[in-house]
């Protein structure tokens, strides 16, 4: 048996060696085709393809258009003549300057106030009141509503003569304000409506963060003699850092998308100048004025702004090891 084994082995090994040398790449392909990458192919390839065409292909095409001079509908874009003229024009356009300023105001005011309000609501709810689940649902419901619906009824509520807001404010003796007509107030009115819609989301994120904190920290703080305010301020809120970062990122992205709300509220491409943001400018330039290349340049600027928000967040997550 040893002989045969040896013979087999010898011949086998020679055969194996022969096979090994000649089948090296063959073996690699076989191993590759059995790897997770390929075996998972039918699952990830189709969505990858769709994402590739839909999202990244769209971004690429948009960037390409922004480098041309395409406008109107008379002729197809001239892809031979690419330059950064549209970006230069955008950086000099006073409308871009005004809208960028409005976008920042909207983003910062909306995000900070929503987060503070959401945190406040989450802390209230965390203290175990009656009907907590129902109240939580009620606070979260506005987020389920479409922007089109909320824009329309906020428009009615802000009506100077018989809107709900002026009626409520009138109870405290404050005069009727022209929320939409007065250019100083209209941006605040829009921000307030958006805060109403999203504070439920911020509340849910913070509530999840609060409830995931171990109880012994509270007890330890109490033992050390901290009162409620100190406990919250020094112990609990710093631990909500990761929740607040993720909530802030989502809210800032929503603020960049406030176009839907503004378009539905005013029913047209041209919104009052105080509420004109980059998104409304982009849509107006593209679909009302047919300046496709210019609008594509503005869209690229918006994309860069969004990336500037998300990139630090991703880096932070990466550093934390959770990416």
């Amino acid at each position: 048996m040893a002989d045969t084994g040896e013979t087999e082995t010898v011949s086998g090994s020679r055969a194996a060696a022969h096979r090994g040398a000649g089948d090296d790449w063959h073996g690699r392909i076989r191993r590759f085709s059995k790897s997770d990458f390929v075996r998972g192919l039918p699952y990830w390839f189709v969505p990858f393809l769709i994402m590739g065409f839909g999202v990244y292909g769209g971004i690429g095409w948009n960037t390409l258009i922004s480098l041309t001079d395409y406008e109107g509908f008379g002729q197809p874009p001239d892809l031979g003549d690419l330059d950064l003229e549209m970006y230069a024009q955008a950086l000099q356009d006073p409308a871009v300057f005004v809208t960028t300023k409005n976008t920042f105001v909207l983003m910062i005011a909306f995000t900070t106030i929503t987060m503070i309000l959401g945190l406040f609501l989450a802390i209230m709810l965390d203290r175990d009141i009656r009907f907590r689940e129902k109240i939580q649902t009620i606070y979260l419901l506005p987020m389920a509503l479409s922007f089109v619906v909320t824009a329309q009824f906020w428009l009615w509520m802000y009506n100077v003569n018989n809107g709900l807001v002026n009626t409520v404010v009138g109870v405290f003796g404050l005069g009727p304000y022209n929320w939409i007509g007065n250019p100083d107030l209209v941006l605040s009115a829009v921000i307030f409506a958006l805060i109403w819609q999203f504070s439920g989301y911020a509340m849910v994120v913070f509530l999840a963060g609060l409830q995931s904190m171990p109880d012994d920290q509270f007890e330890a703080a109490k033992v050390d003699g901290a009162n409620t305010l100190e406990m919250y301020w020094d112990v609990i809120i710093p631990q909500l850092k990761s929740s607040s970062v993720s909530a802030a990122v989502i809210l800032m992205i929503f603020a960049l998308k406030a176009f839907t709300f503004l378009y539905s509220m005013f029913g047209q491409y041209r919104v009052p100048q105080a509420t004109d943001i980059l998104a409304t400018l982009m849509v107006r330039e593209a679909f009302q004025l047919q300046n496709w290349a210019y609008a594509a340049a503005i869209a690229s600027i918006l994309l860069v702004m969004s990336l500037a928000i998300i990139a630090p967040y991703l880096y932070y997550q990466y550093k934390q090891g959770s990416l």
Partner: peptide
């Protein structure tokens, strides 16, 4: 004129 002119169609 009417005060709510900015929100009326």
């Amino acid at each position: 004129t009417n005060e709510d002119r900015a929100t009326l169609s």
